[in-house]
Computed example of a mutant assay.
Amino acid sequence: MTQTPTARLMDGTALARRITEESAEAAAEIRRRTGTAPCLATVLVGEDPASVTYVRMKRARCRKAGIESRQVALPASVTTAELVETVTALSQDPSVHGILLQHPVGPHIDERAAFEAIAPEKDVDGVTTHSFAAMSFGLPGFVSCTPGGIMRLLDAYGVEPAGKRAVVVGRSAILGKPAGMLLLARDATVTYCHSRTADLAAAVREADILIAAVGRPRFLTGDDLKPGAVVIDAGYNEGNVGDVDFASAATRASLITPVPGGVGPMTIAVLLAQTVEAAGRQLGTAA
């Protein structure tokens, strides 16, 4: 017997649209006051089809938000030293307010070294150790965009993390780890799970808020969930499917993000919002 979905969808597309409209208004005000538009520089290594498509999408969203987009395309054969030199030059360029290094950059490159070449005030993607530390200590800085988008979704749908048990499945430096830290800062009790977690299913069933960021299609199902859980699927796998089996999870969750249309649009919206914020700080228009 087919179960009827009971979960309410968390519409990331609609919320991202509102955030982008707000960013466009702020960008227009910066341009009016300074004569300069916010500028985001994107560095793309090689021609990975998914990365090329993603960068193209980001450039289109930049235009909608009144943000200038500068693309720096480098060959797949670029060395770590050459990539670091390129990113450092952008960090020192006063006409660039935000820098996005599209990843992955290739197995022969020290990606962390390239990330660390981004000046903290231009790290609008929240990928440097400086940004992670600032976020963890509640200091001024930029959050990783996907976790930042997740928190905005929770707020938009009235989900208060304080006192809740949050389970993050995944521990990547730009998604799982910062998502857990942001939830902890909001007084959630956070459990990180990963490939070596013993009895993962038991840990997941404790979650009032579940963040799925493991990178495996339909890895978690409705049977794994606590009834009424809030499910944030931050995975995106081949075939437009997430890390959660949507059909079964929607019969047990109270709120759930679709894939696509949930977390993905929020990631780009936060990137744009933080680029405008960075430009405001650098151009002296920030409140």
Rank of each mutant, 00 (worst) to 15 (best):
24 A>N: 00
230 V>L: 09
101 L>F: 05
189 T>F: 15
186 R>C: 01
218 R>M: 08
263 V>D: 00
68 E>K: 07
268 I>H: 01
46 G>E: 10
254 S>V: 01
189 T>S: 12
245 D>T: 13
104 P>N: 05
245 D>E: 15
8 R>V: 14
163 G>Y: 06
85 E>C: 05
253 A>K: 03
183 L>G: 04
37 A>V: 02
35 G>F: 06
120 P>T: 09
283 L>Y: 07
102 Q>P: 12
2 T>S: 10
116 E>S: 03
87 V>N: 04
117 A>R: 03
215 G>V: 03
178 P>G: 09
208 D>C: 11
286 A>W: 15
102 Q>F: 08
230 V>D: 00
239 G>H: 10
285 T>R: 05
104 P>L: 09
269 A>Y: 14
86 T>H: 04
197 T>I: 06
141 G>Y: 01
4 T>M: 13
41 A>K: 12
42 T>H: 00
34 T>G: 05
203 A>N: 07
165 R>A: 02
126 G>Q: 03
185 A>Y: 02
93 D>C: 10
186 R>L: 08
265 P>T: 08
157 Y>T: 10
216 R>S: 13
278 A>S: 09
259 V>Q: 11
149 G>L: 03
120 P>N: 08
7 A>E: 02
89 A>R: 14
91 S>A: 10
229 A>C: 08
189 T>E: 03
35 G>D: 12
95 S>K: 11
59 R>C: 06
226 K>A: 10
129 T>N: 15
149 G>S: 05
22 E>K: 03
201 A>K: 14
195 S>H: 14
162 A>N: 02
96 V>W: 13
260 P>I: 02
201 A>S: 12
181 M>C: 04
191 T>E: 02
188 A>E: 13
239 G>S: 08
68 E>Y: 06
